[in-house]
Design a protein around this nucleic acid. Sequence first.
DNA 1: CATGAATGAGCTTTCATTCAT
DNA 2: TATGAATGAAAGCTCATTCAT
Lengths: 220, 220, 220, 220
Amino acid sequence: MYVLTPKEKEAKKQLIAAAASKLFQKNDFNQISMAQIAHESGVAKGTLFNYFKTKENIFMYLLLSGYQDYLKEVLQRFQKAENITSWNDFAAFLLEQNHLLIHQRPDLLRLNALRGPILEAAADREQTLAGREKLYEINRQLGQAISERIILLDVKQASHLFIIQSAIISGLMNMMNLDEFHHDQLPVDFKGFQIDLEQEANQIMLFYLQGLQQKLEGTK
Amino acid sequence: MYVLTPKEKEAKKQLIAAAASKLFQKNDFNQISMAQIAHESGVAKGTLFNYFKTKENIFMYLLLSGYQDYLKEVLQRFQKAENITSWNDFAAFLLEQNHLLIHQRPDLLRLNALRGPILEAAADREQTLAGREKLYEINRQLGQAISERIILLDVKQASHLFIIQSAIISGLMNMMNLDEFHHDQLPVDFKGFQIDLEQEANQIMLFYLQGLQQKLEGTK
Amino acid sequence: MYVLTPKEKEAKKQLIAAAASKLFQKNDFNQISMAQIAHESGVAKGTLFNYFKTKENIFMYLLLSGYQDYLKEVLQRFQKAENITSWNDFAAFLLEQNHLLIHQRPDLLRLNALRGPILEAAADREQTLAGREKLYEINRQLGQAISERIILLDVKQASHLFIIQSAIISGLMNMMNLDEFHHDQLPVDFKGFQIDLEQEANQIMLFYLQGLQQKLEGTK
Amino acid sequence: MYVLTPKEKEAKKQLIAAAASKLFQKNDFNQISMAQIAHESGVAKGTLFNYFKTKENIFMYLLLSGYQDYLKEVLQRFQKAENITSWNDFAAFLLEQNHLLIHQRPDLLRLNALRGPILEAAADREQTLAGREKLYEINRQLGQAISERIILLDVKQASHLFIIQSAIISGLMNMMNLDEFHHDQLPVDFKGFQIDLEQEANQIMLFYLQGLQQKLEGTK
DNA sequence: CATGAATGAGCTTTCATTCAT
DNA sequence: TATGAATGAAAGCTCATTCAT
């Protein structure tokens, strides 16, 4: 096997990315070295660079492909839930996706925060751009599917809701654990600093959807 | 006086932090070296470590003292604006602070995203804790001042609004510029990805405040 | 008190040295910083350099003054023990001093090993020389006192015995704990490597004195 | 062959160690930097750390492998000198090894003094332990060979003699040159401080062997 | 394509020493 | 004399990346 098929290549790429993802569950970006990723994925260090130009690219890939997976899953769920037609149904559906995102894909939320300040500075432009196009397309499809059933929303507005969703949740994550320090509970009672991520996210999202509904109904 | 007073020490600390802040306006955290900060602040590299145990500490200080300044300023503005008594007045006031935060203190929003994944891993616990206590206190004072005039809000709820504010705006920043790459506009039309930060922040905040008002009036 | 008397100066010198000595009981030379010594002795860092030109000088002082104390004490003990007149009495006396050196002054033995490779490279020549002259004088006095009672030994030979004593014991310390690593017992049975310091020192010293006695009696 | 065999790896390890050893002939441990070792050995600084985790490890390796070489050579010499069978023959043989150690391997004696207080604090445990095990084995073999011919000595006793030898000689080195300061002769006549290393070592060793012989013959 | 040895710029950090007050 | 803030050279070490095999 001296020349790999595109499929095999993609498989190895995912193998490497999966190793990085696993390490990212327990460690921060700066604590993860290429040597560790190589070890975890069972390939040599040099091989990593056959598949990703830089370390940052690996995590950018993780972010982009992870979001694609997430949006695909949301789309599937939406398609399955054929009974969703009203705004309220849809709002409930969206809050359920908060739960999915927070509990199944916290990595995406953490990567969101790193994208601008850390990853983008050293990630490969082409690779990133290609990933974003795919992501954009899925986001658009999802918007399309939603707009077909939820009469108040056009495609762009529906797509955009998922940007807002991620903004809210990853923003809340940025502000979380101010009553801890590096996983240790501080010996101080910081009540106003405490955040129950999911509850808070649902609250903000709910108010947002209510406000949006009124606004859209108003302009209509 | 070769033995510096606490005030003078604090001043030097701020001198160093100011240099770091200036560099942070144009560069990302990883691109800024202690050597640069020393050069920019006009002190020797060793001196930095007399005032901050680690590089991360400098930026943690920037974040904490910056937020203190921000909240103090908000408090002053609120105290000046004596005519604010109704919920609607207050909502308008809060949206104005969005503008302040976004345009005067974007550094705080960027630091927010770094705090958990980057800074906290290597910042000094004591220094951080002390800063947070001060911050918490100011946040509480602000909440107090607000709750005295806005009848629907108790201290904790009012204080918490500023956590929410930062969460929303820094979360939106996390999601911004998906149609760019490292400051270059991408040759792709990513409409759904576009965010007008201030407008979007105002929108979310406004809907949030409306929702909150209704909720609080309901429970009353 | 702007001009200290020589006595006050010497007292402060010893204060500093005592602090260094205390730290040296628990830490190795490289682990002890001037900042620690300053803190432990309750003076400012700069003050240390008014009394000792370099860090190495402090430890050289410790070595030289410590040995002076040790030899003075040996001399006193010898003078008290008036009954020592035979070679065998003297041999027993010397072995008792092994015990004293090993248990009361292990610091001197450790400093012996550092003198050449570490301390001398950066110690002050004059200070060192002055200390050594004093030490030499006491060593000579001790030799004198011994040679007056032990007929086989002349002054130089008697003095020299204390050099030999230190050589043997500090040499054994160099070879000790090969069955440990940094204070942890190794999970290996290194029987041949084990040394019971005092017993071994006594053995070597005893054989040495026996051999020396025969030799001196022969040449007489 | 870009994947090095264990042999090649060991060879490079020795290349680096040899460079360090060469520098150690003229300089003290603290004066030698990793940069110098890299330069001297012709590899990059980073490469050093692929082979030795710390600077101290390099010198620990030097000590352990050097002693292995020394003991191996002693063993070979002993095996060649088939005529050694009596205690006196053996004593003479051992004194010859003093000469070898003092003149061919003074580095080992200097490293002995550094081992405990300097090297062990920062050397790698595993690497050190592995080296010691080999050393112990060779020491045992040598003891075995000797005990087969020298009837008074069992394996452990014979092995132990080489620990004693190193203790005596490195201990004498600790006490040497008290009449010098950093290679300069002091303008003082410190007769009692003077040591002729080899002669003194031979003397102590000889008396020790005589004493031991009598003791062993007595218990027999 | 895979390997992993080699690279070396770059990093943060230390700490003995100086010196203005 | 005492202080301790400031110094800055120098250190050990890391790690993403390269490239010979």
